[in-house]
Amino acid sequence: MALLELRGLHKRFGGLHAVNDVSFGVERGLIKAVIGPNGAGKTTLFNLITGTVPASGGQVLFAESDISRKKPHQIASLGLARTFQNIKLFSDMSVLENVMVGLHVRSRTGFIGSMLRMPAGRREERRLRVQALQLLDRLGLSDFADCEATSLAFGQQRAVELARAMALQPSLLLLDEPAAGLNIYETAEVGRLISSIREQGVTVLLVEHDMSLVMDISDEVVVLSFGKKIAEDVPQSIQQNDEVIRVYLGE
């Protein structure tokens, strides 16, 4: 069975049917892209998967368990990480600390243990620091470890957000427009990064507007229009699909 499976997902906001009976699966080890014109319901779809907004109907199955009624933090602890379209880093915290929050579900020291600085907690703290630094190193961010995260350049902030999501050691990574606001060089870099993440065994589902990036890196593409799935195929076929061309370019 697919790692992530959407079954007849619906979301209504008042009279607006933002997501209308969307079903598809994401197989393990793939990079799958969700594309569609503005307002097609892509971000809403992400919010339904991560539990940020409750679905009006349908089911989300992640690793064979139903997560439709779960809270975002529960879904995250199952190994589903995400980034945000408008970067949401923790201000007033260093890059290192941001990534260490990503390790939250991979650590367990509680309030009492923290207040008393128990030996187990201190050992865990050292482990988190080492792991976070390794992650930053891999993404070429080690020089910025002690910088305030929100003081970095835009592209670097995106990279920090990615590092933070990867710290969760997810089996599925949801990327909401990872190339938004980046120039072509940075976009190419992000593409390489996403491919390398997949090589580490992480399945990727992304929403993206940059067609060249989508066609370059994705194994499969789902096209949404006005909340409905209108196509699902490999990138080459999507580019030839009449319906998709009509939606994007008009009649």
Partner: peptide
Amino acid sequence: SRVGRALRAIHAAPEAAEAMGV
């Protein structure tokens, strides 16, 4: 500590903190 970071994360960006499993 881990808890303190989570608290500051809740303050700075509650939605992101929740998405990190807090």
